[in-house]
Write a protein that binds this DNA or RNA. Structure first.
Lengths: 357, 357
DNA sequence: ATGAAAGCGCTAACAG
DNA sequence: CTGTTAGCGCTTTCAT
């Protein structure tokens, strides 16, 4: 690599067929103004379109900008304009192996990027002290908005720290106080479509295996299940709802055994998540029951593991990417709605486990 | 909620037992100076410790800061100091469902946070155009460093955009040009420990099922496998290495069938990733072979799915969190080493599938 | 339509 | 030890 002095602030040189632009650090609006033979304020005006400028000077300025490879210093601009076109994400989840969180983040980032905003990533790992620290640095950095998110929908306390008027929204979290936007998956609707799918495929004895009772998701999905039965005029039977107050395989496994030893066992099982469904599948295999021919099976989460089972498991996918996007949208373009809690629909992804004869 | 005018810049009020601080927007260094009866520069000096100040005024200033709940405007500070204590992540992966990426990001963020740095999250989704755009905004925002990352280790081109002297490091990516730090998992060592584990448990006929040949990981893990055999004086047999140039279950499944129909089939199989191992497990089940009693099985990635199989799969975990941390460290505190490519060790996580009699 | 001047909130250089 | 002054790079009145 060769270095050499150059008086101008920009040089371009082609090396190995690759055209690279070198801009010396610190080309400022003054340099552009000088080259174009105008005042800095004029350059500012053409960049911001904040005033009528003669077409002639516009082209002159634009040429100078291009020639110098000038890019305005957004720090200086922010100081002056009092906004940063930046928002912060505070991730309250402490699991690093959760794809939900990544999807939420990527969703936020995409919608932000589309609007010219950048996002700061902060991980509080559920520690309120850490959350407060991050809030401070985010506020110090003059973010224009903050999104709090978690990997599982939870109620949470309002941050007890002054927000300087910076708007906030909760993503996969919510707060009891009115007046705060909250973006959540529609677990109820997810339970509904899963059950409806099973019914549509001819099943009348549909069972439900529930997850941890304290999680909203369990209750909402159950309610969706019930309403789907109801719509189809299938009487609800409480013995067809099982669950061990857990989300793990063991729960799915033993619940399935309970279910299949009923005098009239179900012909289809809807599990509140994929891990339960995987446990259910194990139990069914053990009982030498074919999935989906003897019993149809549906999970929830559309995890990678669900797609990798034999047979691949039908599942309900939560709209995390959309949720992330919506969070950023709501933050950046507050809707006129009174509605503050936004539930986004889940989607059924059909695979072999529910596609019986 | 009641709003009322207050002349001072801070008031504190307790509501419902919850003590909240309200700081009116825009308390500046001048306000603090005025309250403390000193010059703004003095306040600056006590904050930055950049000059000897009498203990007396220090306490006066600190009191004023606390009373006004003052926090310096980091935008203004950045403009002046010419650094932002911020770094950018450019995520080149386009998969939103990859836990690797989240782990890398969280690692970066943790190490950054520990050093008082914030991080911008950008997702280029492998689009060079998008990457260039992000590079520009990151540079506009005056970041102090940039990390490029991906979900699978790849060689990549050096960004063809002037970086204004901002240092960069590659995470799970690398570049052929010398002079750039690159943080990678030690796939070779991962292959080594996996194979050594199997050998230590008494296996002499250890097979290897490879992944996509064009991925470095496949080659490195294979080399680890070979060297482990070599160290143990077990002759290498090329027929014990199978693979369909793919990472999917089907590849693991059919490779296993090939392996088990050998005249002298292996007593242990090391798969280059967990998905292959899951396919292998299916094949073994189908052949009515017990895992781990008839054949031991090891995967790579330590995916959630691997832990959820029956039996749970032993696997090799890549050090993504550590890698992320290291990337930030190398960026923020460049080591004096000439060594530019950093390979971090993987870890064996033992589960039932390799723990035979 | 354009330029001069002031100033965003902070820090650094220099005086005293 | 402390205050005064200048200015980071930009935008915004306010003149002209």
């Amino acid at each position: 690599m060769w270095f050499f002095y150059c008086a101008e602030k920009t040089i371009s040189l082609s090396a190995g067929g690759l055209e690279v632009k070198y801009a010396k650090e610190g080309v400022t609006i003054k340099d552009v103004a000088q080259l174009a033979g105008v005042a800095p304020s004029t350059v500012s005006k053409v960049m911001n379109g904040s005033s009528e400028i003669s077409p002639d000077t516009i082209t002159r300025v634009e040429k100078a900008i291009k020639k110098l490879n000038y890019r305005p210093n957004s720090i200086a601009r922010s100081l002056r304009k009092n906004h940063t076109r930046t928002l912060g994400i505070i991730n309250n989840s402490h699991s690093n192996k959760n794809t939900f969180v990544l999807q939420l983040m990527v969703g936020v980032e995409k919608a932000a990027q589309a609007r010219g905003f950048s996002v700061f990533l902060c991980n509080s790992a559920s520690s309120p002290a850490r959350e407060k620290d991050y809030l401070e640095v985010l506020l110090d950095k003059q973010v224009d908005g903050i999104i709090f998110l978690d990997n599982v929908v939870k109620e949470r306390a309002l941050p007890s720290w002054h927000l300087n008027g910076v708007p906030i929204v909760f993503l996969n979290q919510y707060v009891t106080q009115p007046g705060y936007h909250s973006i959540l998956p529609d677990d109820y609707q997810g339970g509904l479509i899963a059950t409806e799918h099973l019914i549509a495929r001819g099943h009348e004895r549909v069972a439900y295996i529930n997850g941890r009772l304290k999680h909203e998701a369990s209750q909402s999905r159950l309610q969706g299940y019930k309403d789907a039965l109801n719509k189809a005029n299938i009487p609800f039977e409480s013995q067809l709802v099982q669950g061990k107050d857990t989300w793990d395989e063991e729960g799915g496994y033993s619940s399935t055994h309970t279910l299949m030893t009923l005098s009239k066992p179900p012909s289809a099982i809807f599990c509140a998540n994929d891990t339960l469904a995987i446990g259910a599948l194990d139990a069914l295999h053990e009982l030498r029951l074919s999935v989906p021919n003897d019993v149809a099976l549906i999970g929830f989460d559309n995890s990678l593991a669900s797609a990798q089972k034999r047979p691949p498991l039908t599942s309900v996918e939560m709209p995390f990417l959309e949720m992330g996007k919506r969070a950023a949208e709501v933050l950046l373009e507050p809707p006129p709605t009174r509605e503050m809690i936004h539930r986004l629909p889940c989607q059924l992804v059909q695979r072999q486990s529910s596609l019986g004869p």
